[in-house]
C-alpha cells in the first residue's frame, strides 16, 4: 500500500476525556513519524473534517466514543461496521462531527479515503482539563496499536 496517511485526533482537551484525540496526536508528534504520515489535532472540527479527509489517501481517527466498553478501553472499527449516532435532523454540527461528515459525503457521493476509527471509552466528559486515570493509563497501549496500524497502512 502507498499514499498519505492522516491521523486525526478529535476532541476538546477542556472536556476531560474528550481530549484523548488531541492528546494522542501530541504523543505521536513527539515521535519520528514516517514520511507521508501526518498527525493532526483537529479539536472539535465539524465540516472541515470533510475537506481534510478528501485530501488524504487513508485516515485514522482517534476520538472519545461511547462504545459500550469499560472506561479506558478502546476498539478499532471502520465506518461500515458501526452506526454513528446523529441528532434527529441528521446534521447538527454539535455532537456529530465525524458522523455528520460521513453521512454528508455519502449523500453527495463524494469519495472518501479508507477510514479506520479508534474509539476510546471515556470515564467522563465534563468541563475540566486532563484525562481520567483510566484513559490516561491506556495511552501507551493505544500509541503502540496506532503505530502498528500506521505501519500496516504504509
Amino acid at each position: 500500500m502507498q499514499g498519505s496517511v492522516l491521523v486525526l485526533g478529535l476532541g476538546n482537551p477542556l472536556r476531560g476525556d474528550d481530549g484523548v484525540g488531541p492528546r494522542i496526536v501530541e504523543e505521536l508528534e513527539r515521535r519520528e513519524l514516517p514520511e507521508d504520515v501526518t498527525a493532526m489535532d483537529v479539536g472539535t472540527a465539524g465540516l472541515d473534517l470533510l475537506h481534510l479527509l478528501e485530501g488524504c489517501d487513508r485516515a485514522i481517527v482517534v476520538d472519545a466514543a461511547d462504545v459500550g466498553l469499560k472506561p479506558g478501553q478502546f476498539v478499532r472499527f471502520t465506518p461500515d461496521e458501526a452506526r454513528l449516532a446523529q441528532n434527529s435532523d441528521g446534521l447538527s454540527f454539535h455532537q456529530v462531527g465525524l458522523s455528520g461528515v460521513l453521512s454528508l459525503a455519502n449523500a453527495l457521493e463524494h469519495a472518501l479515503p479508507e477510514i479506520v476509527i479508534f474509539g476510546v471509552q471515556p470515564t467522563e466528559i465534563d468541563w475540566k482539563e486532563g484525562l481520567s486515570p483510566a484513559v490516561e493509563a491506556t495511552i501507551p497501549k493505544l500509541i503502540e496499536v496506532l503505530i502498528e496500524e500506521i505501519e500496516a497502512q504504509l
Binding site: N12, G43, T44, A64, F77, E81, A82, G119, I125
Partner: peptide
C-alpha cells in the same frame, strides 16, 4: 460551546 462525544452502535 464545543462538546462532542461520538456515540457508536455496532451493526
Amino acid at each position: 460551546c464545543s462538546t462532542h462525544l461520538l456515540n457508536v452502535t455496532f451493526v
